[in-house]
Structure formats: structure tokens, C-alpha cells
Design a protein around this nucleic acid. Sequence first.
DNA 1: CGCCAATCCTTGAATATTCAATATTCTCAA
DNA 2: TTGAGAATATTGAATATTCAAGGATTGGCG
Lengths: 147, 147
Amino acid sequence: MAKPPKENSPITEHLAYLLAQANREINRQLEMRLSKEGVPVEQWRILKVLSDGNGHSMGELADAVLLNHPTLTKMIDRMVSDTLVYRVQDPKDRRKVLMYVSDRGKALSRRLNSLAVSQEEHIVESYGDKSTNELKRLLESLIGSAN
Amino acid sequence: MAKPPKENSPITEHLAYLLAQANREINRQLEMRLSKEGVPVEQWRILKVLSDGNGHSMGELADAVLLNHPTLTKMIDRMVSDTLVYRVQDPKDRRKVLMYVSDRGKALSRRLNSLAVSQEEHIVESYGDKSTNELKRLLESLIGSAN
DNA sequence: CGCCAATCCTTGAATATTCAATATTCTCAA
DNA sequence: TTGAGAATATTGAATATTCAAGGATTGGCG
């Protein structure tokens, strides 16, 4: 039974460590799948978020895809070079830049998404449907309570 | 009820995303606490693992603290400069380098550990004892099934 | 024994991220 | 209306990480 860790308990009993370890492992697996398309996990996230077709500001997007602002700016620079996305200045508020996905980006997004879905199906197979759903529920709740 | 995500479901329903988000948030909180001592989370992990007093090879350590080998080597370089840890060539197998924690490192490790424990207590307070334990159990099991 | 592949760690170059500072635009109150 | 301060995004320098290659040692097989 897991208890709140004491000073001398092993690091593997810390929630922060378990989260890091699980994230690292699952992320590595996803990365392997996405490498078929030659893009990092973050670009999948970006394309997926933008695929609703609405313009998203850089700030919104940075929050949504879990990247710091300058990191996102530079990654978007690369994606613009690859003609996956494009910038439009927001006419309502010209401090903002709205990001949109191009047709090429949409097509890539579909392929990436199918790889990501297949990964999750693979996890569900070995880990179980019930556990997966329960874990997701708990993570959502943790995230909610952490803000 | 969480289902295996479909092609068009939002990214927030992907396990990989929820893990990344939760990890980012908890890690950020921990980082804030540890900043009192001016060390990154990874150094807490390193010191904690080494605090059993046994020598750990770089390979072992890299796995345990979730860092790639070259990254660990360079971080250990810094910690050696700070006289927190030291290297000893393994006499049984001279390809290996065994890492040990210094007295200064031990003292720092105790202070860091107390900060980390207090963070987890804080999480338990707002998130609940039951949820925390259940989440840990599920994460352990996910990690186990992912290997 | 002697050699060759495997293991272990480190290095240097290429790449990516972060921090602090900057430019632009907007908000709002005096 | 205008000017100070807040919000937004980007840039450049400093820092950190990663990738590919290398050096040292070991293990084991012919």
C-alpha cells in the first residue's frame, strides 16, 4: 500500500517520480511511432490543436501544447518553413498572432493522429481498458486540483 | 466516461497528453520548492538514489534518475565541481565509474528530501489520500506493463 | 592465448531550450 | 486624449540536451 513517502523511502514511491517515469516511457513509445513521419511529439500536439480550423493565438497554443512561449515560437518557425502551419495577425487585437493549419498540415495531422490512436489502443490492450480509464480519470482530477 | 480516443477527439483525452500535463504541473511545483536550494529536480533524484551509500555506476544511475547518459555525465560534472558527489573507478570492472555522495551532498539531500516530502503532503491535502494512493498504484502498474 | 565484438562512459558538434530584454499593441484612468 | 502600464510575441545570448563517434576495458569464443 502506497503511503505518503517518508524522508528515507525510495524515490520510486514519490508521485512526482512515478509521473515522470510513466510520462517518459509513454512519450518514448509515442515518439517511436511518430518517427515514421519524422516529427516530434510536440508537432503532433500543435497540429491536433490547430485542426479544429479556428485560429489560435501563440499564448493559447503554448498552454495547450505544454510548451514555453519562446520554444513554441521557434518550433512554429520550423513548421512554417515546412508549410504545415501559417501565421495571421489577429485583426481584433494586433498584438496577437493567430495560427492556422495548412492543407498539408491537415493531411499530416490525420496520419499522426492515426498513429497516436493506435498507440493508445496498444496500451489499452496490455494494460486493460478499466485501468486506462481509471488512470485517465485520476490524472484529470489531479490536474484539476493542482490549479 | 473516458474511451479510447477516436481520430477527432480532443487531445486532452489522450493518455500520453494527460501524463505529460500532470507531470509538467507536478514537476513545476516541485521545481519551485527545490529552487530554495538552487538545484534542479534531477539533482534531487541523483542525490536521493546515491544516498543509500552504495556506489552506483553511471549506467544504473542514468536509468534510475531518468536521464540519458551524456546528459547525466555533464550534470555529474557540475555536481562534482560543487563537491556534492565524487567518482571512483570500479575496481571489479574498470569500464565502470561508481558514483558516491559526499557529506555535503548528504546534507543537501536531506534538505531536498524534506522539501519533496512536504510537496507530496501538500498534494495529498488537496487531492486526497485515497486518490493519491490509487494513482500511484495505477502508475506503477502502467510502468510495469510498458516494459 | 589472442582477437573481436560488446559494454561502459565520455567528448565534441549540432541542435534545442530557456532567460532576459525588446518591440508592438492595447487598456484604462487621469 | 494621452501617457503609463499590461499583455503579446519574438529575438539573441547563455545554457542544456542530444546525436554520433571515440577510447578504454571486458568477456568469450575460436
